[in-house]
Design a protein around this nucleic acid. Structure first.
Lengths: 295, 295
DNA sequence: ATAAATCGTTCTTTAAAACAGAACGAACAG
DNA sequence: CTGTTCGTTCTGTTTTAAAGAACGATTTAT
C-alpha cells in the first residue's frame, strides 16, 4: 500500500499554515476535500498527524516527523518544477565531478580532458573533503567522485569504486643533491616531505621503510599535492610523490626524479553510484584505459 | 499548474528499470496507463523525458535531471513510509540538538538538562563543524544548533539566531602564580592559552589588548574548550576562558580565577529554522532565561 | 523472407479518486 | 445568548486514473 503524495502535499500545506480553511482557499479547493484527504493520509499511516484541540489544529509528534519529510520532498519537487519552468529550452548535458582536495590536479585535468573541448555540455568541478563529496554523490548532486582511495559501499550507500589508473611514486628533490638520494640506501642526511598519514601512498611508503628498517627523518607532512609541489621546489628536502605532479619542474630541470619506489603506487579511483542510465559522456570517461589519464 | 507526483512516481519507476512493460507488471497496472501518465508528465514539464529509439526507452538529459530529483523525493517518501510502517506504535517525541564541537560541554549540558529526566522523549546530541551542522539543520535532521556565534540567515536558509546566554571570560591559571596575573597590568612573564582566531571571544580579547596596547605572548591557540581546560590544568600558562568550563577545578583549588576581562563575553546562540510548529519541549528550552544555563 | 512475438503508443470505455456543497457540531466573540 | 468561525461528515457530481482493444514499429524465430 503506497504512500499518496497528493495527500501528503495537502498535509504539508496545511501544516505549514496551521489553518485548514485558509489553506483550502489558497489552494482553490474546498475545505471538506482537504479535511478528507488528510484524514485518509492519517488512516494510511495509522496515526494522527494533527491533534484537534477545539477548532485548532496542532501537529502531533508523528505529524512533526511527517512534516520534516514532506518539507524535503516538496521543496525538491518545487525545485524540479522551477527548473523546467524557466524557459522551455532543452537541457544541456551536465557532468558533475567531485575530487578530493588532496588529489593531483594533473590527474583531475586528465580525467575531464575529453569533455573540455565540447560546448554541448556543462562541466562542473568541485573540490572537497571525502565525506562531503560522498554526501553530495548520494544526494545526486555529483555524478562521480575522484579519490586516491576506494570506498566500501553498503546497502544504504551502493557506491562503486573503480580504479582508473595508478602511477609510480618517486623520490623528488632539487637536482645536484649530494649525496644523491637513492632507495633504500643513501638517504642519510636527508629529510622527507611526505603525504599525510591517512593517505594510502603514505601507508605504502611506511611499510616499505619498515621492511628495510629505515626511520626516515620527516620534514613535513602535506595533504595537498599542489602544496607538496611547492615545498619540493622551495626546500632541499626529498618529496615522496608521483612525478606527474611536478612534470613541468622535472622537464625544465628545477627538480629531479631520483627514482621510483618499488611497489608504491598512487592510485586513482572513480566512485559512482550504480545507475541504469549513466550519462553517456561520463560512461565514456570511466571506460577509458588508464594510460591517457596520466601523461 | 502543479507537478503531479503520481506521474513522477511512475516515471521514476520506469526510469529505474528502463522497461515500461516490466514496470507495469511490477506495479500491477497496465502498460497503457503507465505510458499515458508519463506522457502527461512530459507535457506538463514541456520536454521529453525519454528518447524513444525503436521500442526502447532511453533517458533524455532532461529525464536524467528529473530522475535525480525523483530519486531523492521518493527515497524520502519511502523512508517516511517505512518509519510509520514499523509497528503502529505512537511516535515518541524527539529533540535533536547539534552543538559545534568547540562549545563548552557544561553549557550544552545546561541547555538540555530539563530534558534529561524525561523518559517520554528521545534526546539526540550531535557534535560537528558549523557547516555540517547547518546543513543538517536545513535538511531537518536537527531541531536546533548551539553555537558561540550567530549566523546570518538568507532567503534560502531562513536561520534564526537567538542569544541564549552570555558569560564573563576570565584569566584562569594555576593558583599561587607569582607575580599574580592581572589585567591590564601584571601580565609580563606570562604566556596565554587563547581560543582560535575565528572565535568571537578571541576577537574581543584581541580588541581589548589592542586598546591597552598589549601584545601578549601566546603559548597556544585552542578551539576546543575541553582541550583548553586540560591545558590550563597542566601548564603554567594563563587561559582566557569562561570560568564555567573549569568550575570543578576552581572549586577544588586546582585552578584559580584571576578576574574577568571587561567587556569580553562568551556568548551562546541557538540557531533554528523558523517553523510554525516547534516541538513544545524545544520551545520551552529556547524561552528559558539564560541564567539557569550557566551555573 | 515471412510469420510470430515483443514492446510502446493511442483510442475508448470503465472504475476510482478527488471534489464541492450542504448539514452538523463544537468553540469562541460580542 | 446569539452570530460567526472553523473543522468534520455525508452525499452526489466531476475529474482522473486505469483497463482493454487496436495499432504500428522493431526484433526474433522459422
Amino acid at each position: 500500500m503506497k504512500l499518496n503524495y497528493h495527500h501528503l502535499y495537502y498535509f504539508w500545506q496545511v501544516a505549514k499554515s496551521g489553518h485548514l480553511t485558509r489553506t483550502a482557499e489558497a489552494l482553490h479547493v474546498s475545505q471538506s476535500s482537504l479535511s478528507q484527504q488528510i484524514r485518509q493520509l492519517e488512516e494510511r499511516l495509522g496515526q494522527a498527524l494533527f491533534i484537534r484541540e477545539g477548532r485548532q489544529l496542532h501537529l502531533s509528534e508523528a505529524g512533526r516527523l511527517a512534516f520534516d519529510y514532506a518539507e524535503t520532498i516538496f521543496t525538491q519537487g518545487e525545485e524540479l518544477s522551477a527548473l523546467f519552468a524557466e524557459g522551455g529550452h532543452a537541457h544541456r548535458e551536465v557532468v558533475r565531478v567531485g575530487a578530493v582536495a588532496t588529489l593531483s590536479r594533473n590527474f583531475q585535468e586528465g580525467f575531464v580532458r575529453p569533455l573540455l573541448g565540447r560546448d554541448d555540455l556543462d562541466l562542473i568541478l568541485q573540490s572537497g573533503g571525502m565525506d562531503d563529496l560522498l554526501r553530495r554523490l548520494s544526494a545526486h548532486k555529483l555524478d562521480v567522485v575522484l579519490s586516491n582511495q576506494p570506498v566500501r559501499g553498503d546497502s544504504e550507500h551502493p557506491w562503486r569504486s573503480q580504479r582508473l589508473a595508478r602511477q609510480p611514486v618517486s623520490l623528488i628533490a632539487a637536482p645536484h643533491l649530494s649525496p644523491p638520494p637513492a632507495f633504500p640506501k643513501g638517504l642519510s642526511g636527508h629529510a622527507f616531505i611526505l603525504p599525510g598519514v591517512e593517505n594510502a601512498t603514505r601507508h605504502a611508503f611506511d611499510q616499505l621503510c619498515s621492511h628495510y628498517r629505515l626511520t626516515p627523518k620527516i620534514a613535513a607532512e602535506v595533504d595537498d599535492m599542489a602544496m607538496m609541489r611547492l615545498l619540493a621546489r622551495d626546500t632541499q628536502h626529498i618529496a615522496v610523490m608521483p612525478p606527474v605532479v611536478v612534470r613541468d619542474e622535472l622537464h625544465n630541470g628545477t627538480l629531479k626524479d631520483y627514482g621510483a619506489l618499488p611497489g608504491v603506487w598512487e592510485e586513482f579511483y572513480a566512485i559512482t553510484i550504480q545507475r541504469r542510465f549513466e550519462s553517456p559522456s561520463l560512461k565514456a570517461l570511466l571506460t577509458r584505459s588508464g594510460e591517457s589519464l596520466l601523461d
